[in-house]
Simulated scan of single mutants.
Amino acid sequence: MGIVKISDDLHEEIRKASSTMSRSINAQAEFWIKMGLLAEMNPTLTYNELIRKLLLSDAGSVQELMSEQN
């Protein structure tokens, strides 16, 4: 884990968004970083398509969690 320095203004925007989305500040920042990376790698995809791609990339870990509960 590392430390990322960001402006106070951006930190405030992350704080607001994290509250609205019921995420921690770190989780919100990580989400935006992932989405930004996906958007740069897939510039023709819409936001919904990027979300789908992100959800599918995490599907393996969710399936493992579900099988551990059964």
Rank of each mutant, 00 (worst) to 15 (best):
Met1Asn: 10
Gly2Phe: 14
Gly2His: 12
Ile3Phe: 15
Lys5Gly: 08
Ile6Ala: 11
Ser7Pro: 08
Ser7Gly: 14
Leu10Val: 12
Leu10Thr: 08
His11Asn: 14
Glu12Tyr: 09
Glu12Phe: 11
Glu13Cys: 05
Glu13Trp: 03
Glu13Ile: 01
Ile14Gln: 03
Ile14Pro: 02
Lys16Tyr: 04
Lys16Ser: 05
Ala17Pro: 00
Ser18Lys: 04
Ser19Val: 14
Thr20Cys: 04
Met21His: 11
Ser22Ala: 15
Ser24His: 05
Asn26Asp: 13
Asn26Gly: 11
Asn26Thr: 13
Gln28Phe: 08
Gln28Cys: 10
Ala29Asn: 02
Glu30Trp: 14
Glu30Asn: 10
Ile33Val: 14
Ile33Ala: 13
Ile33Phe: 15
Leu37Met: 14
Leu37His: 13
Leu38Asp: 04
Met41Tyr: 15
Met41Trp: 15
Met41Gly: 07
Pro43Asn: 04
Thr44Gly: 04
Leu45His: 02
Leu45Pro: 02
Thr46Asp: 02
Thr46Leu: 01
Thr46Ser: 09
Tyr47Ser: 01
Asn48Ser: 05
Asn48Asp: 03
Ile51Trp: 00
Ile51Lys: 04
Ile51Phe: 00
Arg52Asn: 04
Arg52Trp: 00
Arg52Glu: 06
Arg52His: 05
Lys53Leu: 13
Lys53Met: 09
Leu54Cys: 03
Leu54Ile: 01
Gly60Ala: 07
Ser61Asn: 07
Gln63Asp: 14
Leu65Ala: 11
Leu65Ser: 10
Met66Val: 11
Glu68Pro: 02
Glu68Phe: 07
Glu68Met: 09
Glu68Tyr: 07
Gln69Leu: 12
Gln69Arg: 13
Asn70Met: 12
